[in-house]
């Protein structure tokens, strides 16, 4: 259930994002989800890629500050109130969320990538409440 997310440190400088996507594209690595967090000084690019380990070594070779971070992906019905229900459960059980990003490819379901403070507990809580988690292998394939 644990998904390896790539996190890349990016200075606020034009062309750096291009370079990351170009490098992965050339290596035949696909990206299924991505989010770019920015501050006034720097940014962090987070993404789910088809081959996380390979992507990691490719970016490292090109001297990016990059690491793999454990995240989980919740598959939730694409309807009003669905995310609120899931988040209520998590906060009720004391799971703190560092960040999340979400995407939807149709009108049935949406995927929510979560970075909780305690990933094991998060998975247990979600499974105990019968919420659907996306497996890593499925996630990398998208």
């Amino acid at each position: 259930m644990i998904i390896k997310q790539l996190s890349v440190f990016l200075e606020n400088k034009t062309g750096r994002l291009n370079e990351v996507t170009q490098l992965l594209g050339n290596a035949g690595i696909n990206m299924s989800a991505m989010s770019l967090a920015d501050t006034s000084e720097f940014g962090i690019l987070r993404m789910i890629a088809s081959e996380p380990e390979k992507a990691l070594s490719i970016l490292k070779e090109s001297e990016f500050s990059v690491r793999l971070t454990d995240v989980v992906c919740l598959n939730s019905p694409n309807e009003p109130g669905a995310l609120a229900r899931a988040l209520n459960i998590l906060s009720g059980e004391g799971v703190f969320i560092e960040y999340l990003y979400a995407y939807s490819m149709d009108n049935k379901t949406a995927n929510i990538v979560l970075k909780p403070d305690n990933i094991q507990k998060c998975i247990e809580v979600l499974q105990a409440h019968k919420l659907e988690l996306v497996s890593a292998s499925d996630m990398y394939k998208i």
Partner: peptide
């Protein structure tokens, strides 16, 4: 390098 902005801050 941390994945979390608050740690980098």
């Amino acid at each position: 390098f941390s994945d979390e902005i608050r740690q980098l801050e």
